[in-house]
Nucleic acid binder design. Structure first.
Lengths: 101, 101
DNA sequence: AAATCTTATCGTAAAATTACGATAACTGGA
DNA sequence: TCCAGTTATCGTAATTTTACGATAAGATTT
């Protein structure tokens, strides 16, 4: 079975590379704000995230891509908007890995 | 009272900047390995960390400085060696903040 | 169809990160 | 004192990150 995310094993040795990759994705205040915002919501439109941050739309889009690449968030195109939500499974795996470091 | 570390408040709004700073410090496999190694030990000499990693001594020293700056580790000069240990207080605050994000 | 709205991507400049070798600073031993 | 060992710092090159404006792609409205 193919694995799609940075962190997927459980029980074996900690995936240092995968954990570092997620930490790196969380290593910028704008991205922490995004994750924090999404954690308190079921989902939201991209525009709301753009409004949340004091950054250009293109910069926010770049940060979103970074979080998406790390598997932390998921974007679903809905009409002319994109709906983002936290990938809680990955986020909780991150918490577990941090805990078991 | 002066605050010396990236994360110090508790109970108020999450310190997004401080949390991001620690995540950034953990955003490299070499630094995750170092923290993981120190977590399983009381303390160790710098040389052991250098031996642990497939990197030049100067590069490891740079990574150690990065972790030190984030408050995650503490280095104590002991004779001609430097003894490093995990700052468990900061590490646990990091875990708590991640949990409460 | 044309205009508008939303979001991703491109191009780019500035800054930061990562890695290395060389070297300095310091301790401890011969 | 001189030499060896340990670690931090300097200088530097290559790469990555961060930010922006401009623009493309696609949907919606007029």
């Amino acid at each position: 079975m193919a694995q799609c995310c940075a962190i997927d094993q459980e029980g074996g040795a900690l995936d240092v590379e995968g954990f570092a990759a997620i930490c790196k994705a969380l290593g910028h205040p704008a991205r922490v704000r995004i994750v924090q915002f999404l954690k308190g919501l079921d989902s939201c439109y991209c525009g709301q995230i753009v409004d949340l941050l004091p950054l250009a739309q293109s910069t926010v889009s770049q940060h979103l891509k970074c979080l998406k690449d790390a598997g932390l968030i998921v974007g679903r195109v809905e009409g002319s908007c994109t709906c983002y939500c936290l990938n809680r499974e990955i986020f909780e795996k991150f918490l577990r890995l941090a805990d078991r470091l």
